[in-house]
Computed example of a mutant assay.
Amino acid sequence: MSCFSFIKVIMILFNLAIFLGGAALLGVGIWVSVDGSSFMKIFGSVSSSVLQFVNVGYFIIAIGAVLLVLGFLGCCGAQKESKCLLMTFFSIVLIIFIAEIAGAVVALVYTSMAETLLAATVTPVLKENYGKSSDITQIWNTTMEELHCCGLMNYTDFTNSPYYSNNGETYPSYCCPKGMSRCNETLAGKVDVPVCMQHLSFKMVFGW
């Protein structure tokens, strides 16, 4: 097999994988849009909370459609050795690449603004609903457990929250060392637990 034939096969297989991935995402997006209730039953209350803020179905459909078209153009272009299809394929890839670079630059420039906006939006929600709303409590418990962090800005985000008031003015256990039965203000203030904003800011800038 010549080098050109090998590259051709690799490109066909690569774009076939993109095509199948796009088809799968498109199917999931249509499922969420048409029958969101069954989606929420399978994935639980977290999916319900996400669907309240983002129209996940249409978002997934858009991504799936782009990947589907991209995979089709690349696969057919490589198979037929069509310059037109391959130029279209590489043009779309270039546009996506430029959009990602532009998005990264914007994220770096506006990170501090986004942090301020996030703090102003999320902190009141925590103080009002953590310990009262099961969905919000579960989402934040999962976030703090997975990221090993406490609160958006610090442990004081939970001060005067329903959880704080109903549990003898204590904070979530994630804000104190493991094994502590009661996480009070003294212990939470002494322990240097990372705040969740650090992780969220990193994700906003780098996407992971």
Rank of each mutant, 00 (worst) to 15 (best):
F72M: 12
S133C: 04
S49K: 07
S134D: 12
S37W: 14
A104W: 01
L117I: 14
I30Q: 03
I139L: 11
F89H: 14
T121Y: 06
Y58L: 14
L20P: 06
V69N: 06
I139W: 05
A102Y: 00
F14P: 01
F53P: 00
S38C: 07
E100T: 04
Q52A: 15
V66H: 05
D135L: 03
C150A: 03
L26R: 07
S49N: 07
A119Q: 08
T123P: 05
V46R: 04
M40P: 05
I139A: 14
V122E: 03
L117A: 15
A65T: 12
L25G: 06
T156E: 02
G131E: 00
V32N: 01
L126H: 08
V66L: 14
F14K: 03
V125M: 08
L51W: 01
N154E: 04
E145V: 02
V34I: 14
T156I: 01
G21W: 01
S112W: 08
M153G: 01
Y155Q: 00
E145G: 09
W31R: 10
S47P: 08
F97L: 13
A17Y: 00
F59D: 01
I18N: 05
V125R: 06
P124L: 04
A23H: 02
F59C: 04
I61M: 13
A99N: 02
F39I: 09
G103Q: 00
I92K: 03
G77K: 11
F43H: 14
V93A: 14
Q79M: 13
I136D: 00
C84M: 13
I92T: 06
M153L: 05
S45H: 11
L152V: 08
G77C: 05
F89R: 02
V93L: 15
M144D: 00
D135A: 14
E146T: 11
S47K: 10
S82C: 09
G71R: 03
T111N: 12
H148D: 06
M144H: 02
T143Y: 01
E145T: 09
E145N: 10
S134V: 13
T137I: 07
N55S: 10
K132S: 11
C76R: 07
E81M: 04
V105E: 01
G27W: 14
A114S: 13
Q138R: 07
V106N: 03
S49Q: 10
E100Q: 13
F97C: 13
T123R: 09
E100A: 09
M40L: 10
G22K: 02
F53N: 12
G29Q: 09
Q52Y: 03
N154Y: 04
F14N: 05
M40G: 11
V46T: 14
L20E: 03
I101W: 06
A107N: 05
A120R: 05
N55V: 10
E146Y: 02
F97D: 04
I139Q: 08
G21E: 01
E100I: 08
T142I: 07
E81G: 02
L67D: 10
G64H: 11
L152C: 05
C84F: 15
M40K: 15
M113C: 04
A23F: 12
S49G: 14
L108W: 07
L126I: 13
S134H: 06
Y58W: 15
G44A: 08
F97Q: 02
G64M: 12
K41M: 12
L68D: 08
A23G: 11
S33M: 07
Q79I: 11
F39C: 02
I92G: 07
S112P: 04
Y130A: 04
V50R: 09
L126A: 06
L20A: 10
A99H: 00
I95E: 01
T142D: 09
